[in-house]
């Protein structure tokens, strides 16, 4: 286990000594703050409108704008999911592909490191960097709770906010696991990033893509879609089914990565 931690630490230190982490952080913060401002503005407009005509005159789907939690944070988490989908492949692509291209994979494979330690170490490093990236977005609920106001007690319902954030983290962890597996298949980081994206995006949108198919199949496809699984978590509902679903995807990806590393011995 100590070896796995050493590998994880090395991964993190390389992310932070190259411009990669900073570029990704900047992209994450810039894009999400852009959307955050849009959401806050929409929230203010709806509130002003409601004050002049009364909430019961507004269309029912505006009800989410009654409080900052549902009106801004939950929607922001939804947007951050999409940004993560674009950003995570750039973080996961180098995990194995870079080692293969730089011939350092030979070092890892000729020192007494078990494949399982290598995979876990790499994944822990990946988790660290994606958590750091997503951790930055916690600043938005903090801003709201510092400057926002509410008629009824607290500004934000923190349990809902944090559970939604947990969903975002789980999603980030899933992206990294799948991305790591794809990275272990190739020497080219660009191919790894692109392929990860090509796998994750349709998977995310599976439910929409399956609208046309017949019933039992449609439910199955809908169930497998990331989008369906994430919905409850984001709204702050602790959905055990979704938790199991994502953990299975992560575990399965780690298993596949392990097989790929092991396969080196049989090549």
């Amino acid at each position: 286990m100590r070896t796995a931690l050493a590998i994880a630490r090395k991964e993190l230190s390389i992310y932070f000594t190259t411009p990669w982490a900073y570029a990704v952080f900047t992209a994450m913060v810039a894009i999400s703050s852009f959307f955050f401002m849009g959401l806050v503005q929409a929230f203010q407009q709806t509130q002003a409108w409601a004050r002049s005509v009364g909430w019961n005159q507004l269309p029912p789907d505006m009800a989410a704008y009654r409080n900052l939690t549902d009106g801004v944070v939950v929607q922001l988490w939804g947007i951050i999911l999409i940004i993560t989908l674009f950003v995570a492949p750039f973080l996961s692509m180098r995990l194995f592909a870079e080692e293969k291209r730089n011939k350092t994979f030979e070092l890892l494979m000729t020192t007494p490191v078990r494949p399982i330690e290598l995979v876990l170490g790499k994944y822990l490093g990946g988790l660290g960097i994606i958590s750091a990236t997503l951790g930055l977005t916690l600043v938005f609920p903090l801003i709201l709770s510092a400057f926002g106001a509410s008629e009824s007690g607290t500004v934000l319902e923190w349990p809902t906010v944090l559970l939604g954030y947990g969903g975002v983290l789980l999603w980030g962890a899933t992206c990294m696991a799948v991305g790591m597996f794809i990275s272990s298949l190739t020497e080219s980081q660009m191919v790894a990033a692109l392929l990860t994206f090509v796998v994750m995006l349709p998977w995310m949108l599976l439910r929409g893509l399956a609208q046309g198919v017949e019933e039992p199949l449609r439910s199955i496809i809908g169930y497998l879609s990331f989008d369906t699984q994430l919905q409850n978590l984001l709204r702050g509902v602790l959905d055990l089914k979704a938790l199991v679903f994502f953990l299975s995807v992560i575990l399965f990806s780690l298993l596949l990565t392990h097989r790929t590393v092991e396969a080196q011995r049989w090549a």
Partner: peptide
């Protein structure tokens, strides 16, 4: 083992 290409992490 020293491979043909020294296995170095250039960033470290």
């Amino acid at each position: 083992y020293l491979p043909e290409t020294p296995p170095l992490y250039l960033e470290m």
